[in-house]
Design a protein around this nucleic acid. Structure first.
Lengths: 248, 248
DNA sequence: AGTTTTTCATTTGTCAGACATTTAAAAGTC
DNA sequence: GACTTTTAAATGTCTGACAAATGAAAAACT
């Protein structure tokens, strides 16, 4: 009986939904101005604060932007790849951290997706992308680099690989998978030896991309995945042992 | 000089950001209750409506949920895969439609990502996933099926393929790529002949997945990509011709 | 006439206070 | 002890107001 009315939606939620539907269905187009808050409150027969709450909901999703002053108002926002990118990353990050997603699951997803990009990137990467990859490899070899900085560089390297495919949709979709891994990677303590292995594989990948050899890049990515998984297992085991010492 | 203060963020945006950061950085954990709106307005030294606007922003991103009554309030929400899934789809759909992303770009991304799933799906798919795929193939062969229904079935088929990989992170990341294509696919008019080709390739994919042959599934996906791209080119050309007739 | 300055109306941003509604816990009753 | 009633706390909503930004029209000036 409880679920007959799951959750009578708030007025502001209903209004937000109505406007969102109008945008998604194309009844409101990009840069079109919405009625003023006063007009909206008349149309929906609610108070202005309620309308405002609805508009803030939409603003939070980058669906509208607001401007003050005469001829200001709320405008349908062109959702940019940049905005979508950022949203994707925070959503993915939270998703992984809040649901206790196992490292190996996230890692598998990440490398599977990257392998999807490798062949395209091998074909199309610009000199810039390649230069970024090589620069990051160099950075990763610097002594005295913290683990966190190493991970950040790792992400930059892989993003260059993905962006090399020259497909913005692909870059957008991959953003979450690549960047959201960083907090998980930070669990790992990278020894000098393990860094050397990772860097060597990065080198193989960069070389393969340079020679437009997608197959080789995929193979190196697979090797890197196995190496990463092994490192994570080791970190996890070490952590378990520490905990056992603490409790026992 | 204009960019020195790019856009003085609203109070409600600032407060939302502060709380969001607290959640992302783990200072607020799942199911933890936030201070009441009255307390928040004191802490941030703003009025309750402003606090409420901030909370609505967070609610729009499924970061919090609110409950009325005594011992009610705003609680940090566990971002579920389901919620994230839904958000991803609407974001991806809007992104594609608002930025005039070319069909071939979106299509390329979609199939590249699906090929990343195919080997995993071939290894792990359950009987259920396979049954869904076969059922959709059968549905696609039914006469009198509208183009829209055909596309819907196509999406269901491909989602089963992706879900077969048994990696929820992968399923989540792929959701946008697969589902957001549907509006684009609906441009295409499927002739009986073209449907037959698509169905035949679906059959090849399903068989490959059944026999745990990831390589064959990938090959069939590539063939399906080429077929889809060809159909889209045809639809585009036909549209261009119609327009020329209208204007000329 | 042309240009600059001022005024003004519009619109969002913010605030204060009030009431309605929901809900769980406390108090009261049998 | 089990049930009912009361109560307090919290969100949901409304009204009315003022502040601040901004573009356009009006006015003033050259």
């Amino acid at each position: 009986m409880k679920n007959s009315t799951p959750q009578p939606e708030d007025l502001s939620a209903r209004i937000a939904r109505a406007i969102r539907d109008a945008i998604v269905e194309g009844r409101l187009i990009v840069d079109e101005r919405l009625p003023s808050e006063a007009e909206l409150s008349e149309q929906f027969e609610v108070s202005r604060p309620t309308v405002r709450e609805a508009l803030k909901r939409l603003a939070a999703q980058s669906l509208i932007r607001t401007q003050r002053g005469a001829s200001g108002g709320a405008f349908v926002n062109r959702l940019s790849f940049e905005d979508a990118h950022a949203q994707q990353i925070t959503t993915s990050t939270l998703l992984l951290s809040m649901n206790d997603v196992r490292f190996d699951v996230a890692c598998e997803a990440r490398f599977a997706l990257e392998r999807a990009c490798a062949p395209l990137s091998a074909q199309r990467r610009s000199a810039d992308h390649l230069a970024t990859m090589r620069a990051e490899i160099h950075r990763q070899g610097q002594p005295g680099l913290t683990d966190e900085a190493f991970c950040t560089s790792d992400v930059t390297f892989h993003r260059a690989l993905v962006d090399g495919a020259g497909n913005p949709v692909l870059s957008y979709q991959l953003a979450g998978a690549v960047e959201a891994m960083q907090p998980l990677m930070n669990m790992i303590t990278f020894t000098t030896r393990s860094r050397e292995k990772v860097i060597a594989l990065h080198q193989v990948i960069a070389d393969a991309i340079a020679e437009q050899d997608g197959t080789a890049a995929c193979a190196a990515l697979t090797a890197l995945e196995e190496e990463t998984q092994a490192l994570a297992r080791k970190a996890l085991a070490a952590r378990a042992e520490t905990q056992q010492q603490a409790t026992g």
